[in-house]
């Protein structure tokens, strides 16, 4: 098994930390992982993205241009990465601020309105955990309890009191994610 994921959105949405949690969960499950962030001028413009690979085998290139799954959290990222999803792959997006919804029919499209949901929760910072829950609901790349363990490992101890609310957000994400359309497989 090898899963190649891009998570893309604004800086501050928790894009990078969501990738970290996935990686830690992968490590707990004995998998190989790479986490390759965009850094530099791109990041300084306000957008952030990270490509994550979780694999049973040694990972060759950490820098990839096509993905099994894209998690898209703003319009710029939609424009940039919709076409980078492999045919038959998954695109998961938050509808907040999206002016052009995904158009491809050869990929599985899901929508998780995490920003709206996070506004209802104790803290809006759980946004990325709602997205993570949604991802794991449609693509169980790592086991749920391993994801929670990953969360614990990637969070500094001084924030450990926030784990229950994050856990709750992950579960919320599993509930609110909606299928937009399944990939049409050409005969």
């Amino acid at each position: 098994m090898s899963e190649e994921i891009i998570i893309a959105g604004f800086g501050g949405q928790g894009v990078l930390s969501m990738g970290k949690i996935l990686c830690y969960a992968g490590i707990v499950q004995g998998k190989e992982v790479t986490w390759m962030p965009s850094y530099g001028p791109e990041m300084r413009g306000g957008t952030a993205n990270v490509s994550v690979i979780i694999s049973d085998e040694r990972i060759s290139s950490p820098i990839i241009s096509e993905f099994d799954t894209a998690i898209i959290l703003n319009q710029q990222s939609m424009d940039k990465f919709e076409n980078s999803v492999k045919p038959g792959g998954y695109l998961i997006y938050d509808g907040n601020g999206i002016t052009r919804h995904p158009e491809r029919t050869d990929i599985n499209v899901y929508r998780v309105d995490a920003a709206a949901e996070a506004a209802q929760m104790e803290t809006t910072k759980t946004f990325n955990m709602i997205v993570l829950g949604g991802l794991l609901q449609v693509k169980p790349i790592v086991e749920m309890d391993k994801a929670i363990e990953g969360l614990k490992k990637s969070l500094p101890e001084r924030y450990h009191h926030l784990i229950p609310v994050n856990e709750k957000a992950i579960h919320r994400g599993t509930q609110i994610i909606q299928e937009v359309r399944k990939a049409k497989v050409e005969a």
Partner: peptide, 10 residues
């Protein structure tokens, strides 16, 4: 190089 410096792995 910048890629290996910035990326995370196990």
């Amino acid at each position: 190089d910048g890629a290996i410096g910035q990326m995370m792995e196990k």
